[in-house]
Amino acid sequence: MTTAAGTPKLNRTYKWVGGLLGIVVTTVVFIVPFAFIFLTASKSGQEASLLQFSWPTEWHFVENLVEVIQARDYILVTAFINSTILTVGSVTLMVVVSALVGYVLQRRKSRWNPFINFLVLAGLIVPPAVVPTIWVMQSLGIYKTLHGLILVEVAFGMAFCVLMFRAFVATIPRELDEAAIMDGAGPLRLFFQVIFPLLRSVIVTVIVVQSVFVFNDFQNPLYFLPGDKGATVQLTVYNFLGQFNAQWNFLFMDILLITIPMLVMYIIFNRQIVAGMTSGAVKG
């Protein structure tokens, strides 16, 4: 489309040679590591310890799966439940709370706007101060609790969401608001019954992108929700790394299991993920 200028025949050669070359290179660079995860997860412990990239001589996929799920008193099941609550809870809260902000920020011109915009940008740039956050959480009694971690994820992810919502609200004509106000809608009805449904596409994008971030997050659970009881799926991998020592088949089975949800999500919401990740590219 862009660079392949030249004769039609050259173009056709480029189309095939370029494509095939791309397939070969990406297979080696990107597919092999994933194949390695899958193959190692299917091997016996002894064979997996050789760390080789090879076809398993015997398939132990199901046994490994059962073993990993049962390990340490079904901790992986607990972790999946925790991670699901964490992801669903924080993303839901994030969407509602930041949609409200993005909406008012775009619609209402007040002298607070520059200050709020500054806070939003700061939220994107400033690295969270870890120990002081623990200190605040402890004094509120929400340290080492799942709802505490949910609130932390909301606080850290909010800035991105507000930016997305503000940009999208700008595309909704104000006449709609005015019509609804004429019909006697109050602020709450105006937002939840008129505006919120119109935000659907950007909401899906925000949900998908933030779910990936929260589900894959390692640092925040590590700091704010330590201990086995509240382990999230990412922490299980890290804990297994110490516990299983060289039992790579179990470790890789765990990695495989926690990667699958995001894979499924990508297949379903491919377009929204791409939209979310590239938003701002054209605007700068």
Binding site: V96, V97, S98, L100, V101, Y103, V104, R107, R108, S110, W112, I116, L119, G123, V126, P128, A129, V131, P132, T133, W135, V136, M137, L140, L151, V152, V154, A155, F156, M158, V162, D177, I181, G186, P187, L190, F191
Partner: peptide
């Protein structure tokens, strides 16, 4: 105003308590 300031409130509380305050405390 159909765009009340208190719409900022839930976000402001979470963000202020768990992000802004710890940053200053640091």
């Amino acid at each position: 105003s159909p765009y009340p300031m208190w719409f900022y409130l839930p976000a402001a509380i979470i963000y202020g308590v768990l992000f802004v305050a710890p940053t200053f405390a640091s």
